[in-house]
């Protein structure tokens, strides 16, 4: 299977959209315009996009605190997301969820999750639904290296394996769970853990869109074909702190700058498609301009958007009569 020109343009646009989105949120948060706290995905774009390129509306994903990129990659509306992050009524969740709970089940996005390790059991559920109703759907759990140590995650590996569920577990290992390094906090290795549950595991460089895309294709096809769950261990880096406001003093000197200079996902993608003459620089420059305008527009509108009112406080607690 090959990526068409349109696929490549779409992939680049999604990655650029995530980058611009997160940079804008960073800026607005620093300026004190965004309430609460946010966890940014900048630097990790190739993972979310490379994986979600294989998914459609039959398929579900569950995300993490660091969910904005997964949302965009899975097809959530970036304008609604921006409104949500600003706590506005027209937000994707009516301003009731915020950054950590953005979801849109209509596109198979089961939510960013405020609980580390909250997602994998839910993804077993989505996979069970797909299997039971024979939709052909696949479910993907994104977890960080932090959640990779939670019992819920291990239990989900086991359940997915013994029920032969169409599930993929993606460990996005950005090297740090909050401020704690994964080289210290993860016993053994992700691959050995997968092997312990009888799951195939591919280790992949998360800065390389093409590597992620290829590894994900195999894992998702395996799930779709009824061959059970897999793991992807994706190594990558985040450009901002665990949360906005984190001074990132625990990282090594120049660590982020080195990654940005040598392994930035967008840069690698750009170089690769130009070298292989798949896309022109002009195509991507145009996307950069269009996306920038789009995000500026989203921020402007979100800032001006109406807040929910007291009448919204008690709605949406229950679906049926209460």
């Amino acid at each position: 299977m090959q990526l068409s020109r349109n696929d490549l343009l779409a992939a680049y646009r999604k990655m650029r959209l995530i980058r611009e989105f997160e940079d804008a949120v960073h800026e607005e948060f620093s300026a004190g315009n965004i309430p609460g706290f946010v966890h940014l995905y900048a630097g990790e774009e190739a993972s979310g996009v490379g994986i979600c390129m294989h998914l459609d509306d039959r398929d579900a994903i569950a995300s993490t605190h660091r969910g904005h990129g997964h949302c965009i990659a899975k097809g959530c509306d970036e304008r609604g997301m921006m409104f949500e992050i600003f706590g506005k009524k027209d937000g994707l969740c009516g301003g009731k969820g915020g950054s950590m709970h953005i979801a849109d089940l209509s596109v198979g996005m089961m939510g960013a999750n405020g609980i580390v390790g909250g997602g994998p059991p839910l993804i077993c559920g989505a996979a069970l639904t797909a299997k039971t109703l024979k939709t052909g759907g696949v479910a993907v759990a994104f977890v960080g290296d932090g959640a990779s140590n939670q019992g819920t995650t291990f239990e989900s590996y086991n359940l997915a394996k013994v029920w032969n569920l169409p599930a993929v577990f993606v460990v996005e290992d950005n090297g740090y769970a909050e401020s704690t390094a994964s080289v210290w906090s993860v016993g053994g290795s992700q691959a050995a853990r997968a092997a312990g549950f009888g799951m195939p595991c591919t280790e992949v460089d998360g800065h390389d869109f093409f590597a992620v895309w290829e590894a994900a294709r195999e894992a998702i096809e395996r799930a779709r074909n009824g061959e059970g769950p897999s793991m992807l261990h994706v190594r990558l880096n985040r450009y901002y702190g665990h949360f906005e406001g984190d001074a990132i003093s625990y990282k090594g000197e120049g660590e982020i700058e080195r990654v940005k200079a040598e392994k930035d996902a967008l840069m690698l993608f750009r170089n690769r498609v130009i070298e292989t003459s798949l896309l022109d620089a002009g195509d991507m420059d145009a996307i950069d301009r269009e996306v920038k305008e789009r995000i500026v527009q989203c921020v402007t509108e979100a800032k001006a958007g109406a807040s929910p009112t007291e009448a919204d406080l008690l709605t949406d607690v229950y679906t049926s009569a209460y």
């Binding site: 579900a60 994998p120 059991p121 839910l122 077993c124 559920g125 239990e155 989900s156 359940l159």
Partner: peptide, 12 residues
């Protein structure tokens, strides 16, 4: 896992 799975299955 299975209570969470049930929650996820219900939502989907």
């Amino acid at each position: 896992a299975f209570i969470g799975c049930a929650a996820g299955a219900a939502a989907t």
